[in-house]
Design a protein around this nucleic acid. Structure first.
Length: 211
DNA sequence: AGCACGATTAACT
DNA sequence: GTTAATCGTGCTC
């Protein structure tokens, strides 16, 4: 996708990424999957966003150019993939949380330990393991195929098929950030990481504005 | 220099 | 339902 796709409001990007195809070239093999679940992390005020700590060596890429990758290490063993959004100088990103595998499933199964079912790419750390995404894939330009990692367009997902809910795994993150519905997924997809117990209506009080 | 914790997962009871 | 695995990061002393 062109840079302009990522250089806009993070929630719009998070929703628009649903249905797009994430492509990875690994050792000459093409691996891909349809993005079915994302989350938005927006600015220093969002206490769930790593940029809450301001500019640090780790968060520097979040302040950079939209369309670049932000890959970070967590829980002592997992790598998670984000795409930077909005304008240069404003730290925001979309976390890719789940894919519906499309190409290179044999390679993915091998990398994942031949696990069965829909668990190949259904989770932010599962998909990075399946696609071979780690430290070396941080700060790559996903608008360029030379990075070996990019995003292709897909059919737009109708609004009534998009579920919004609270982000996952936020632990002790305080309100309103804990409950703000910045998680997006394709309703009914068996490839999402966790199926929400119920569709949560979008609460106007959670619709925060910023200058 | 030391510490608490994490945008998770797999394997348990 | 619970918990171990495992270490970079940012914060406090």
């Amino acid at each position: 996708m062109p840079r302009s796709f990522f250089s806009r409001d993070t929630c719009s990007v998070a929703q628009a990424l649903l249905g797009c195809k994430l492509v990875r070239v690994l050792d000459g093999a093409r691996l891909s999957g349809i993005i079915v679940e994302t989350e938005a992390y927006i600015g220093e005020e969002d206490l769930a966003c790593h940029a809450r700590a301001g500019r640090t060596p780790r968060t520097e890429v979040m302040y950079g150019i939209a369309g670049y990758s932000y890959v970070y290490f967590t829980y002592g063993m997992h790598w998670l993939l984000n795409v930077i959004t909005e304008g240069e100088g404003f730290p925001a990103a979309v976390l890719i949380r789940a894919l519906e595998p499309k190409e290179g499933l044999d390679v993915m199964r091998e990398r994942r330990g031949f696990q069965a079912g829909n668990l190949l790419c259904s989770g932010p750390a599962r998909l990075t393991q399946a696609l071979g995404i780690a430290a070396e894939e941080n700060a790559l330009d996903l608008c360029s195929k030379s990075s070996g990692l990019w995003i292709e367009g897909g059919p737009a997902i109708p609004d009534d098929l998009v579920f919004r809910g609270p982000r996952v795994g936020l632990g002790r993150t305080p309100e309103p950030w804990h409950s703000i519905p910045w998680r997006y997924l394709i309703q009914g997809s068996p490839f999402v990481s966790k199926i929400p117990s119920q569709a949560k209506k979008i609460d106007a009080s959670h619709h925060l504005t910023r200058g």
